[in-house]
């Protein structure tokens, strides 16, 4: 049946979905309430039209600029740099971080032809500089809104490409007079030492902190 085959073929292009899962979904949709299938189809169809990239941080948003970039409760002195928009949601879920974000849209990888010009690195430097110029201006925005960027937190993954990107950003920000930090790596909270792999343990020892 072509309709089923077509849908299975489309679903298998989704990440983490193999042919078996796609078939299960298809048969579920065949039996599902029509209101549900129509709502699902409409949401999928309108998704890309309704969700945009925030013109400031590069994260997903329905309203530009996004709620984080315009939020009065956000600490504008600190910007967390992440690889993908999904990383913003992950960090937000921790409720620990109250600063701003900057999404790079990838990681440096000369092997794949991804150089600094393909990532949102220039706009990060611009934001850091802009923060400083606002500090010197005397407009009427709140104190928090005109705060100078004091720290950039590099939250790229601890992989070869993630480390390269972090080192590159640290280098380009050297002259901007901003503190550059990197997320800590090592033993997960609540984890047992006995279950940590040797590489994680080795990295934890290299990055040990005074108490």
């Amino acid at each position: 049946m072509k309709a089923i085959e077509d849908l299975v073929s489309l679903l298998t292009r989704l990440p983490g979905i193999g042919r078996k899962s796609a078939l299960r979904m298809t048969y579920y949709l065949l039996k599902a309430d029509q209101g549900y299938t129509q709502a699902l189809a409409e949401r999928i169809g309108s998704l890309q039209g309704e969700i945009h990239f925030c013109s400031i941080c590069g994260s997903y948003t329905e309203v530009d600029p996004c709620a984080v970039c315009t939020g009065l409760d956000r600490d504008r002195r600190i910007i967390c740099v992440v690889e993908q928009p999904q990383d913003v949601l992950t960090i937000e879920a921790s409720k620990e971080y109250k600063g701003l974000y900057h999404v790079l849209g990838g990681l440096l990888s000369p092997l794949d032809g991804i150089g600094p010009d393909k990532l949102r690195i220039a706009s990060l430097v611009h934001r850091v500089r802009e923060g400083r110029s606002k500090e010197n201006s005397h407009d009427s925005v709140s104190e928090n809104h005109k705060a100078m960027v004091e720290e950039v937190v590099l939250a790229t993954n601890p992989t070869v490409e993630g480390d390269t990107t972090a080192l590159y950003i640290r280098k380009v920000l050297e002259r901007e007079g901003v503190r550059v930090t990197r997320l800590a790596t090592g033993i997960p909270v609540g984890g047992d030492l006995e279950y940590a792999d040797r590489l994680t343990l080795a990295r934890s020892f290299r990055g040990r902190m005074p108490l």
Binding site: L108, P110, T164, L167, V172
Partner: peptide, 9 residues
């Protein structure tokens, strides 16, 4: 610029 960060690694 990339070589500057790849060399130390």
């Amino acid at each position: 610029d990339l070589l500057d960060v790849l060399d130390p690694q």
